[in-house]
C-alpha cells in the first residue's frame, strides 16, 4: 500500500499524470474507486483483497478523460482490459500509465506504454479457482431443463437496470443495441422474454472480448451470476479457437476473424 501511495505521489507531484485512479475506502466493506488529483491526497489510496473493481471502466468516461492523463491502479484483469480496449482502438499509447499491482500487495510496476502492459501480462498467470471450475462443471452436468429453470428463475429477477452494462469496461458503446428502436431489438420493459434477450445479447457482444473480471456479477443488484455466462463463452472461444482476449495490443478479435478449419460438427 505504501509503495503504491509513494508511486502515486511521485507521479502527481512530478506532473507525469494529473489523476491517479485507484481504490479507496468506501462506506461498506468493499473498496470503491477514488480519483486522486493532488499529491497530498494519496493517503486515500488503499490496496487489499477487497480491491476487485475493474477500474478500466473509467478510461472511456468523458468526465474522467477531462481530468488529464491518468495513472490507473491495475490488478491483472484490469491490465487485460487495457489491452483489449487498445485492440479495439479505445485507448491510445501514452494516454495512461498502468500501475500493475495485485490485491494482495507487493510491488507496484509502472507501465507507461501499451507494449509494456503486453509484456507484463505475458508473464502473468490467470488461474481460475477450484470453486469456479466446479461451478461450470456443475452446469455441464445439469440437464437442459434444469439449466433452463435455473436461468429462468435468475432472469425473472432482472430489473433491466443495466448496472451490468455500466460496470463493464468493455460495454463502452455510446449507443447500445437496447437503445435502438428502429427496429426495437429488445423490448423495453423487464419481462421474461426481454430479460432473456438482453442477457443473450450482452453475452454474445462480449464473446471473444470479455476478460472475465466479474464486475457484471458484482454490480447486479439482484445477484444474477452474470459472469457465468461470459465465462462459459470465454471457455468456448478458448477451446474452439485457441483464443484469449486482452493479451495483445494489436490482438485480433475472435469473432471478427476465422480459421478455415474451425470446427463444424454441428453443420450438415
Amino acid at each position: 500500500m505504501k509503495a503504491l501511495q509513494d508511486k502515486a505521489r511521485e507521479l502527481l507531484a512530478g506532473g507525469a499524470v494529473q489523476v491517479v485512479i485507484g481504490y479507496g475506502r468506501g462506506s461498506a466493506a468493499a473498496a470503491r474507486a477514488v480519483f486522486v488529483r493532488e499529491a497530498s491526497a494519496v493517503d486515500a489510496l488503499v490496496l487489499d483483497e477487497t480491491c476487485l473493481q475493474n477500474l478500466a471502466v473509467y478510461l472511456r468516461k468523458p468526465e474522467v478523460r477531462r481530468l488529464g492523463k491518468a495513472a490507473l491502479v491495475a490488478i491483472p484483469a484490469v491490465l487485460r482490459t487495457i489491452l483489449q480496449l487498445a485492440a479495439e482502438n479505445q485507448v491510445s499509447d501514452g494516454s495512461l500509465i498502468a500501475l500493475a499491482v495485485t490485491p494482495s500487495g507487493g510491488e507496484v510496476v509502472p507501465l507507461a506504454t501499451l507494449d509494456a502492459v503486453e509484456k507484463h501480462v505475458a508473464g502473468l498467470d490467470f488461474p481460475r479457482g477450484a470453486a469456479e471450475e466446479a461451478e461450470l462443471r456443475k452446469f455441464a452436468e445439469m440437464g437442459l431443463q434444469e439449466r433452463r429453470s435455473f436461468w429462468e428463475e435468475q432472469f425473472s429477477r432482472c430489473l433491466k437496470c443495466y448496472a451490468c452494462r455500466a460496470a463493464c469496461p468493455l460495454c463502452y458503446c455510446e449507443r447500445c443495441t437496447v437503445e435502438c428502436n428502429q427496429p426495437q431489438w429488445i423490448p423495453v420493459p423487464a419481462h421474461d422474454l426481454g430479460n432473456l434477450e438482453w442477457n443473450v445479447m450482452r453475452a454474445m457482444h462480449l464473446a471473444g472480448r470479455c476478460v472475465d473480471c466479474g464486475d457484471c456479477s458484482r454490480a447486479c443488484p439482484v445477484g444474477i451470476p452474470l459472469q457465468l455466462l461470459n465465462r462459459r463463452l470465454v471457455d468456448e472461444v478458448y477451446e474452439r479457437f485457441a483464443f484469449r482476449s486482452g493479451m495483445a495490443v494489436h490482438g485480433e478479435n475472435a469473432m471478427s476473424t476465422f480459421k478455415p478449419d474451425d470446427p463444424e460438427d454441428f453443420i450438415r
Binding site: 464473446a207 471473444g208 468456448e236 454441428f266
Partner: peptide, 29 residues
C-alpha cells in the same frame, strides 16, 4: 460463411448453457 460459422459456434454454446434446446436450430451448407 466462415464468420457466420464462428458466430454460430458461440451462439449454440450460449443457448445450450441457458438451457435452450439447440436441436431447434439446424445449421447446414
Amino acid at each position: 460463411n466462415f464468420h457466420a460459422r464462428r458466430r454460430w459456434i458461440v451462439f449454440r454454446a450460449l443457448l445450450d448453457f441457458l438451457g435452450i434446446d439447440v436441436r431447434r436450430i439446424q445449421f447446414s451448407w
